[in-house]
C-alpha cells in the first residue's frame, strides 16, 4: 500500500512542472556558485588558501542547496495533502482500505524520492572536477548525506504543515515559518546565558555544517531523524483528527 501511494505521488510529481523548475533554477545558481568558488580558489596562492577546494565547494554548494531544499520541500509537500484536501483527492485514500500510517509514509517516501535529485545536484557539479583535481570523496559523501537528511527534515515539516489546512498557500507559509524558526533559533543563544546550548542544538544549520565539514556524528544523525519522526508523528495526529473534526 505504501508503494502504491508513493508511486502515484512520484508519478504526479514528475509530470507536473514544479520539480523541474526547482531543479533547473537550482542548477543555474549552483553552477554560478561553483564557478565563483573555483575561480576564487584558483586566484589564491598555495600559502593563502585556508581550506581545501573540496571544503570550499562543499560549504558553499551544499550550503546553498540546503536553502534551496528548504524552499522546495514545503512546495512539494503542499500538493500531497493540503491540495488533496481542497480538491477532494484525499477522499479516495480515506475511503480505501489503507492505514493512516501507510498513507503518510507513502507520501513521505515520495517526497524523499522527489527531493533526492536536488540533493545530488551539488555532488554532480563536483563530479565535473574529478578528472582535473583530487577531491575528498568521503567529505562529499558526508555532505550529500547531511543535505539529504536535512531535506527529509524539511519534508517532514512540509507534510505536517500540509496536514493542517486545506489551503496550500497557507501550508507553505506555515512550513516556511517553522523552518525559519529552526534556522534562527540558534541565535537565541546569544540572548541568554552563554552556557545554555539548547537553542544552538535545536538549529538545523549547526548540525548540517558538521556534515559539510565531513564529520558524520551520531548526535547530528539523531537530530535529523528525531525531528523528522516528530513532525511525521504530528502529521499523523492531524490526519487522525480529521475524522473527528
Amino acid at each position: 500500500m505504501i508503494a502504491t501511494i508513493a508511486a502515484r505521488e512520484i508519478r504526479s510529481g514528475l509530470v507536473t512542472p514544479l520539480l523541474w523548475v526547482l531543479l533547473g533554477v537550482g542548477q543555474v545558481v549552483l553552477a554560478w556558485i561553483f564557478l565563483q568558488v573555483v575561480e576564487d580558489f584558483s586566484a589564491l596562492d598555495a600559502g593563502e588558501r585556508s581550506a581545501s577546494l573540496t571544503q570550499e565547494l562543499c560549504v558553499n554548494l551544499f550550503g546553498f542547496a540546503a536553502v534551496l531544499a528548504m524552499f522546495a520541500a514545503p512546495l512539494l509537500a503542499m500538493r500531497m495533502l493540503s491540495a488533496e484536501f481542497r480538491d477532494g483527492g484525499y477522499d479516495l485514500l480515506a475511503a480505501a482500505p489503507a492505514r493512516l500510517i501507510e498513507i503518510l509514509l507513502g507520501k513521505f517516501i515520495a517526497l524523499a524520492v522527489l527531493i533526492t535529485p536536488l540533493c545530488l545536484l551539488p555532488a554532480a557539479n563536483l563530479a565535473l572536477l574529478s578528472g582535473a583535481t583530487t577531491l575528498d570523496l568521503g567529505q562529499v559523501a558526508a555532505a550529500t548525506l547531511g543535505l539529504w537528511l536535512a531535506a527529509l527534515f524539511f519534508g517532514a515539516i512540509g507534510l505536517q504543515a500540509s496536514s493542517l489546512t486545506e489551503q496550500p498557500g497557507a501550508a507553505v507559509l506555515i512550513a516556511f515559518g517553522l523552518l525559519l524558526l529552526f534556522s534562527i533559533i540558534g541565535r537565541a543563544e546569544s540572548l541568554t546565558a552563554q552556557t545554555l546550548s539548547l537553542f544552538g542544538w535545536l538549529s538545523w544549520n549547526e548540525h548540517l555544517f558538521r556534515f559539510l565539514l565531513g564529520a558524520v556524528r551520531l548526535s547530528d544523525l539523531a537530530y535529523f531523524l528525531l525531528f523528522t519522526g516528530f513532525f511525521l508523528a504530528l502529521a499523523h495526529r492531524h490526519l487522525a483528527n480529521r475524522r473527528l473534526q
Binding site: R8, S12, T16, D87, G88, D91, A95
Partner: peptide
C-alpha cells in the same frame, strides 16, 4: 464510494 466531488488526480 463516490464523493460529491469525484476524487480525481488531473495530472494522470
Amino acid at each position: 464510494y463516490l464523493p460529491e466531488r469525484p476524487p480525481l488526480h488531473p495530472e494522470l
